[in-house]
Design a protein around this nucleic acid. Structure first.
Lengths: 207, 207
DNA sequence: TGCCAATTAGAATGCATGTTTTAGAACGTA
DNA sequence: TACGTTCTAAAACATGCATTCTAATTGGCA
């Protein structure tokens, strides 16, 4: 190496994440990323093969951080704690959280799927996380993990907390305290293993 | 009128909805819409001002149908029934449902906001629906509609059912029966008006 | 000191796509 | 039957963006 680099790889990754977090996937044009860093667009291509690679690496970075925060709790069979752990994680990971939780990978990558190394890395992360998740489902039930059980767990641990969090993430505002209350109450009222009472035909009316 | 039209306005609207439902927002290019209908792209511009107008009208159409299905139940103060009504509605409105429920308007319209007439129409629909929603929140509580109450109701009536439905909408498969069970149980276990037990500091542990 | 690979710098290229234009066909009416 | 308006048809245009190219700069090392 003979010339000292003015910009680092993570400069570009962070800029891409911030742009997507603030303005959606197609706000992160190569020119916008470069402009945010203060570099020419050509410099991005010295470090990354393509835009898809930049976004892929950004996604894997954010996802790995998310997995680190939740997987240990899942492995210990603590669904409610895992769901609640999303709150401090997103508080401590501003742009990362908005990038990861506000965007669906399918919308981000459908037009330009990330190249092989990133694909493989993501699959690795996902299978590791799924292992932890399955362990949690089994631990919380009678040992089985049928389709309904898995769907309930996914909802309780990921989809519901994220849905509750979404309006505040969108506004870029810190989540108010009642968010924690909602998640706690949700898990208390609707366990992963359906309570026997609800296995019978509906005998209760909300009217 | 002197020449009979080969294609109708709704042909193009439906094609746009189907394309977005199947492949996300940027699958609905003007050429793709035209190709699906079997018309030249120019014909679209005879009926609509722009791509934004096409998507705007499509959105308003789907949203109006959704409002028709849910608003009456909300006005009568039936949150659980309203949440459950999303299921038959989405079953009966294949492309419409996937178009409306699988896409966030912000992602669909951020780059090209729909022109004035569609904007105004949407605002009209939204304010009417919000009125019904607020009535429901008030009816289900002690007469107040504070921020937390509203957030809980939004989650219970819209976000949670849609999150539960999402995987099946994405696959294009009919939702299995346990989806109905999950929504019913969710509303039973976590009412809009927080149960007094949960107003106290957490006294229960999930561990 | 002078060389050279790594890096910056920014213009050039090519492609996808929304929109416009121009030409021609259809059909009710006079 | 000829006209005028509405529509089809397809090519042309404009723009934004990812990617590539060419040149200039830097600073450790022979």
């Amino acid at each position: 190496m003979v010339r000292t680099a003015l910009f680092s790889e993570t400069d570009f990754i962070d800029a891409a994440m911030a742009l997507v977090a603030e303005g959606g996937p197609n706000a992160a044009t190569m020119q916008a990323i470069a402009r945010r860093v203060g570099a020419p667009t050509g410099s991005i291509y010295h470090r990354f093969d393509s835009r898809a690679a930049v976004l892929g690496i950004a996604w894997n970075t954010a996802y790995a951080s998310f997995v680190d925060a939740l997987a240990p709790l899942l492995r210990r069979g603590r669904p409610c704690e895992a769901a609640l752990a999303i709150l401090p994680w997103s508080r401590e990971n501003g742009h990362r959280a908005r990038f990861l939780l506000l965007n669906e990978p399918v919308a981000l990558f459908e037009d330009n799927p990330p190249p092989e190394p990133q694909r493989a890395r993501l699959e690795e992360l996902e299978s590791g996380f799924d292992e932890a998740f399955q362990a949690c489902v089994v631990a919380c039930g009678d040992g089985t993990a049928d389709e309904e059980r898995v769907a309930r767990a996914k909802f309780l641990i990921f989809d519901a907390p994220i849905a509750i969090l979404r309006p505040h993430l969108s506004r870029g505002a810190p989540p108010p305290p009642y968010v924690e209350r909602m998640i706690t109450e949700l898990h208390a009222g609707m366990p992963i293993a359906a309570s026997p009472a609800h296995s019978f035909p509906m005998n209760r009316a909300d009217r």
